[in-house]
């Protein structure tokens, strides 16, 4: 098994307030991790730390989505691959989207149910559609791993499953902060629970029940 993400004995915080203390974590390629815990427990912090460290080869869906509302869905998805293409191609795509790139992006958008919205400005979409645009962008970014911070929060059960299916089939390794426990148990291979600034739980998903996880949400 190859190690994909690793943190050893590290503290993290903002402006002197420690948000996470003494964190050690090892994630192997092929694992599907769900980060769970109360809001404010430090899930987002952990995701953003991993993102900062592994940005070079990891797709990312931030909680705020990082979309550009005045650009179309196509352009927002295309932004996942700006680094792969030449400046000229990027600029041309901005003004006249190339058929070749549309052909690459169209299926991804269709998979997530926004295929018809390809040339609609993101600012005009619903919250759920915007979130799925950000997922598409991560998928178009490609690579073997994806980090996501609450990637299904704005979607209903059905759409959430579509998203989870898409992410887990597109990426070998996924690390997602999640608030929906059932979805977490269903899609992940391993659950990491965060409470009181540290890792309180780290088990295989098939070894844990919903009630076991409730302890994470008790003060």
């Amino acid at each position: 098994m190859t190690l994909r993400f690793k943190l050893t004995d590290e503290d993290f915080g903002y402006r002197g307030d420690i948000v996470l203390r003494d964190i050690s974590i090892e994630i192997n390629a092929g694992e599907r991790i769900a980060l769970v815990g109360q809001s404010g427990a430090g899930k987002s912090t952990l995701i953003s730390i991993l993102q900062a460290r592994y940005a070079a080869d990891t797709a990312f869906v931030p909680q705020d989505l990082g979309l550009v509302p005045t650009l179309s869905v196509f352009h927002n998805i295309y932004m996942g691959a700006l680094q792969r293409n030449s400046v000229v191609r990027n600029l041309l795509n901005l003004v006249w989207p190339r058929p070749a790139d549309i052909a690459l992006i169209q299926p991804i958008a269709e998979q997530l149910g926004i295929g018809e919205k390809l040339f609609v400005k993101v600012g005009e979409l619903s919250g759920g559609q915007q979130q799925r645009t950000a997922i598409c962008r991560a998928i178009f970014h490609g690579g073997d791993a994806c980090l996501g911070d609450e990637p299904v929060s704005a979607n209903d059960q059905h759409q959430s499953r579509v998203i989870m299916d898409a992410l887990t089939t597109s990426f070998d390794t996924v690390v997602l902060a999640m608030h929906d426990i059932d979805l977490a148990l269903e899609y992940s291979t391993r659950i990491i629970g965060i409470k009181d600034q540290s890792i309180a739980l780290d088990v295989a998903a098939d070894q844990v029940t919903r009630t076991d996880l409730n302890t994470l949400y008790v003060k």
Binding site: F60, G66, H75, M79, L82, Q83, V87, N90, R137, H141
Partner: peptide
């Protein structure tokens, strides 16, 4: 915010025109 999701290695012109200017 959009600047933060760009992968490292994105050229500055593309980054500017896609993520900042619009």
């Amino acid at each position: 915010r959009a600047v933060k999701i760009l992968a490292p290695g994105t050229d500055i012109l593309s980054a500017f025109l896609y993520a900042r200017l619009p």
